[in-house]
């Protein structure tokens, strides 16, 4: 085993760690969308934890692809997600707010009675 292949393996290890962390964050955000009580709180889990997870996965893929055209396209994809994701979340939140959807504003525990959680 020469030095190049050791380096290659290290890069693959880092990329695997990044991708698994990112996928774990995306999965946790999805669990949050199911568990949280109302629309406005779900929005936090759905929109934003996704963004970090997506960027980590794309970073891992870039490391895995090496220095090629594929990496450039992946970087462009990451930039697009980074720019559009907060705008889309803001648009949904703004539309809900203007239509008069009332947010839940009191302290909430997930093990109390659940029927008021709209």
């Amino acid at each position: 085993m020469d030095w190049m292949s050791v380096l290659q393996f290290a890069v693959h290890l880092v990329s695997a760690a990044l991708m698994l962390t990112g996928a774990g964050i995306v999965l946790a955000g999805a669990v949050g969308v199911i568990r949280l009580p109302d629309f406005y709180t779900r929005m936090h889990a759905a929109g934003m934890t996704d963004t970090l997870g997506a960027e980590l996965i794309i970073l891992g893929l870039i490391l895995q692809a090496g220095f090629t055209l594929v990496s450039v396209k992946l970087a462009l994809l990451g930039l697009i997600i980074f720019l559009t994701s907060p705008t889309a979340t803001h648009a949904v939140a703004n539309a809900a707010y203007r239509s008069g959807l009332k947010p839940l504003l009191r302290r909430w525990r997930s093990d109390e009675n659940r029927e008021d959680a709209a």
């Binding site: 794309i58 893929l61 997600i81 979340t89």
Partner: peptide, 25 residues
């Protein structure tokens, strides 16, 4: 509510994009 569904569609699309990127490699 409608907005829950819009949010779910948006997040679903974001995950599809990631899946396509992983699939490509």
């Amino acid at each position: 509510t409608l907005y829950d569904r819009v949010l779910a569609v948006n997040a679903f699309g974001a995950k599809i994009v990631l899946f396509l990127a992983v699939f490509a490699l």
